[in-house]
């Protein structure tokens, strides 16, 4: 599906943590193309045949593109808000489609089963109605008014609460979650997944957070998020098919899957199909 691959080629992708680049650089790949991320001022990303790729540094990560992005990397204003702790969780490799990693992050109905007694618990399994839209101006998917009851929603929470959520997809393999901030009511904690597609069935996931939490040790914040993500990884590596189906002919999405359906529609409209299955099998 060459046309679709071109569409995703002109996007930005995370390829390294700027603060953790070894002197010899980081060797990795982006959609099947071998690249090296080289420390320096400026940081460079080069392909095997010596071509320099576009580079931007943002949210602690090095971002690059195999093509020519038509706009800057998406903005997360909370990253510049005073008092926030910015947490680089570090890379996790997952044997799944980069699109599946995003879709799983957008899902809440799995909280009582995959993240039992942390993000959700039986019998609080019902998913209420929420709003989803594709914001035309920014060309992003947004889900709002999402609510879910959680026994321990964040390291800074001392008991169960009904958590408010918003989900945002500003790029085909990046997603931002805004959730109730227990330490500062009225503000949102921000948790992101920046996904680097290595191949259509392999990705490096770079979680990142911007939180209001002055109490919890950094390592505990990181471990909490890693633990959650490792629980998701066992799901991601065992879904059939590996590629993300854009045709749900062999699935049964329900109203609880509305954000996932909106994400898949947005991918389909833009022909962002690297990691997608076009015909249901």
């Amino acid at each position: 599906m060459t046309i679709g691959h071109h569409a995703m080629i002109d996007q930005w992708y995370p390829v390294a943590l700027a603060s953790q680049l070894p002197p010899e650089g980081r060797t990795t790949q982006l959609m099947g193309t071998a690249i090296r991320v080289l420390p320096g001022d400026p940081v460079r990303v080069v392909t095997g045949d010596g071509r320099d790729l576009r580079v931007t540094l943002r949210y602690g990560h090095v971002w690059t593109s195999l093509g020519e992005p038509s706009k800057d990397l998406f903005d997360i204003p909370e990253a510049d808000q005073p008092g926030r702790r910015l947490v680089e969780v570090g890379v996790v490799r997952v044997r799944c489609s980069p699109l599946r990693a995003v879709e799983n992050f957008l899902d809440i109905a799995h909280f009582p089963f995959v993240h039992t007694d942390i993000l959700g618990a039986e019998p609080h399994t019902e998913v209420g109605k929420y709003d989803v839209e594709i914001r035309e101006k920014e060309d992003e998917v947004w889900a709002t008014k999402v609510q879910f009851y959680q026994p321990q929603a964040a390291k800074s929470a001392t008991g169960g609460i009904t958590t408010d959520y918003m989900y945002r997809v500003p790029a085909p393999t990046s997603t931002v979650l805004y959730k109730t901030c227990p330490a500062r009511p009225g503000e949102w904690d921000v948790i992101t997944l920046f996904v680097q597609p290595l191949t259509e069935e392999l990705c490096d996931v770079w979680p990142w957070m911007a939180l209001f939490d002055d109490e919890t040790a950094l390592t505990d914040l990181i471990h909490f998020q890693q633990m959650i993500f490792l629980q998701d990884r066992s799901i991601l590596e065992n879904q059939i098919p590996r590629l993300l189906p854009l045709d749900p002919g062999r699935e049964i999405p329900t109203r609880a899957d509305l954000t996932s359906v909106a994400y898949r529609r947005w991918l389909k409209r833009h022909q962002f199909t690297y990691g997608a299955q076009l015909v249901a099998q």
Binding site: L246, D247, P248, G249, I252, P253, T254, R255, D257, L258, V261, R264, R265, K268, R269, L278, V279, A280
Partner: peptide
């Protein structure tokens, strides 16, 4: 009603050569 919602979800995507 929940299954009619599910029908809507599926049809919002449909097969690859259709745009809803």
């Amino acid at each position: 009603a929940d299954l009619i919602d599910a029908m809507e979800m599926g049809c919002l995507l449909g097969p690859i050569d259709v745009w809803v």
